[in-house]
Each structure stands twice: as structure tokens, then as C-alpha cells.
Design a protein around this nucleic acid. Structure first.
Lengths: 111, 111
DNA sequence: TCCATATGTGACCAAATGGTCACATATTAC
DNA sequence: GTAATATGTGACCATTTGGTCACATATGGA
């Protein structure tokens, strides 16, 4: 049911540092060292984050000599939207209304 | 920068069991005991998941006597889409093309 | 060649996570 | 009142997570 292969992507996106890395990569590919300069944590922490993003296919890696260029791959984000988030669209407004109705009619039994 | 208050929601959505709980609540509110019957894990595990979902405001709780009715609140999902995911829309197709161009022109220096 | 640069690996650690259970509380039914 | 039902609390535990570091490897430039 949830085995759509997007588990690693969901997991990768749960961390704010990783979401910020993706935000940086939106403006174009960057080397690992370049990315590290934008964060307070160590290079090793960023490398671990990049590894998690790479396994989730949210980052594609191109090696050029001694540099590692990290590219954003937005496809898994699109899939998360299509396969899960879009299914909640009709509830965005409805969910609050349904709660309101139910609370107001505590004695009713419709449903 | 990432302090839009949606951190707990991102975190809550990273777990497949919790996403499945929300999927079940899409069809209408349910009591905790009713939800537990749909899962293999213990009632306590589900209660912890519900607590995390409640803190993330993805589940709203209405207490009726000894029952606890869990309601889906899709608003944080909408906000995650609006404030983060929608910003990647233009990259869904472009990201793969950009990578392709860059790899093909390894010697070029445009950018 | 020799050195600075850029990235990779493995060990290690504290804290968070997801799970269990025993037990307590509160409400409905008889 | 008493018993069954529904949920809540706290302790506990194994694993994962996010972080550190020392050290190794690989590449480009003088």
C-alpha cells in the first residue's frame, strides 16, 4: 500500500537541513565543499545528508575530477505529490467543515 | 528560513504507518481502538503515532465519553504543498534536462 | 615530484525514534 | 455497585539518526 518506493524520499525530506540543501540546489548544481560553506555543521554531516538524498534519488551525483557536483532531481518530489499529497486536495477545506458538523450534532448518528 | 512551523508535520509524514493512519482518516473520523484493528503493531504504538500526528496538527481529537475520535486535518498538508513542494514544480521536467546538458558538455564552461 | 585541495571511509557517541509492557483512569452497561 | 470497555501514563529497550573526528584516497597545479 505504501510500497511505492518513495519511503526513502519521504524520510529524506523530513530533515530541515536536507530540505535546505535541496533549496540551494534549485538554483543549480553545486560541489559538496561549496554546499558545506552554507551550513554550520561539519563537512561530514553534510556528506551524510547528501548520501541520504542520493539514495532517495533526490540528488544525482556527477563526478568531475576531484569534485563532486550535486544535482537536484525533483522527480521524487513530483511523485510524492502525485501519489499521495494530491489525494488530500479535496480535504483541504472539507476536513474542518466535517469536524465542525460532527461537534455541533453530538447526538446525531448520520454515519 | 525553514521556520514555518511545518517541521513537526514533515516529521510526522516521514513514517509510513502515520501516512496510512491519515489515509484511513480520509474516509471519516475513527476512534483509536478502531484504528488499532487495522495495524499489526500494538495499541500503544498507534497511540504514540496519533500523539505525533496530533502535535503536528494533522489529526484533531474530539473526546466523546470514553471514546477518542480522531479527525483528519489536511491543512498542514496543504501548507507543505504551498510553501515548499509547489516551488519545485518548474524543476520537475527541467532538472533532468539540465543534468543531461551538463554531462554532455563536460568541457564547456557556461555557468 | 610535491603539496594543496576535494572527497571518501570507518569508528564512535548522544539523542531521538518506534516499539513493548504493566498499570492506572474514566466511562458505559447491566 | 460492579464489570467490561476505551483510553492514558510511565518505564523500559533496541535501533536509527545526526553529529563528531582521525585518517585515507584521489586529483590538479607549481
Amino acid at each position: 500500500m505504501d510500497h511505492d518506493g518513495l519511503g526513502p524520499a519521504w524520510r529524506a525530506l523530513s530533515d530541515p537541513t536536507r530540505r535546505r540543501i535541496l533549496d540551494l540546489l534549485k538554483h543549480g548544481p553545486r560541489t559538496t565543499g561549496d554546499l558545506c560553506e552554507q551550513f554550520d555543521v561539519s563537512r561530514f554531516a553534510i556528506m551524510k545528508h547528501l548520501d541520504i538524498l542520493e539514495r532517495a534519488r533526490l540528488v544525482l551525483v556527477e563526478r568531475r575530477g576531484r569534485e563532486r557536483w550535486n544535482h537536484l532531481n525533483a522527480v521524487p518530489i513530483r511523485q510524492i505529490y502525485e501519489r499521495w499529497i494530491s489525494g488530500y486536495q479535496e480535504h483541504w477545506a472539507a476536513s474542518l467543515l466535517r469536524l465542525k458538523r460532527r461537534i455541533e450534532s453530538k447526538t446525531g448518528k448520520e454515519q
